[in-house]
Design a protein around this nucleic acid. Structure first.
Length: 158
DNA sequence: AGGATGATGAAG
DNA sequence: TTCATCATCCTA
């Protein structure tokens, strides 16, 4: 499990700072999806995370598949046991069949839902710099479950 | 209309 | 490290 935070215009790496067409969603009510296309071919899934008027999104970069492994493996074209099934923002969207058509969707109801776990699980959250950005590359806004198998990359060496 | 730029992934 | 591949933004 792995996420990154993208803030408002003060965060130079955030689409809220340099991508006008994403502004409406960034500033919208939390609990909705913001899906964009990276490098022309990869969908990336964000959850809008703040009350309306306060820009902010959470990019979901990796997760641990618990259900539907067969379907994910089929969409990804790899084995269902692979740790990379939904690891990496583009891979995650392919595994879950998330496309830009899902942008704006309500994440509290419908096909895409973010819900609390059935049972609480014990884990430690590690923190470090975000991946693949050039601006504001020093901000430690990437969060992942420490020692977790389903993480896209280990922290950048210093 | 045309060029630059990526919140990537896969292969070598 | 290279490159496939294109939505979006910028310049003109």
């Amino acid at each position: 499990m792995e996420t990154e935070a993208y803030l408002g215009p003060e965060d130079a790496a955030s689409h809220a700072a340099f991508r006008p067409r994403s502004h409406a969603l960034f500033y919208g009510e939390g609990g909705h999806a913001y899906v964009y296309t990276a490098y022309g071919m990869h969908a990336c899934f964000n959850a809008v995370a703040n009350p309306a008027g306060q820009p902010g999104c959470v990019l979901v970069r990796a997760l641990e598949p618990l259900l539907g492994l067969r379907a994910m493996a089929r969409r990804r074209g790899i084995g269902a046991e692979s740790a990379r099934l939904a690891t990496g923002p583009g891979n995650l969207c392919r595994a879950l069949a998330i496309t830009v058509a899902d942008s704006g969707a309500d994440l509290t109801a419908g096909r895409l839902v973010i819900a609390p776990p059935d049972r609480p699980r014990d884990f430690t959250i590690a923190r470090g710099p975000r991946i693949g950005i050039t601006r504001a590359a020093d901000l430690p806004l990437r969060f992942w479950v420490a020692d977790h198998r389903h993480v896209s990359r280990l922290p950048r060496p210093r």
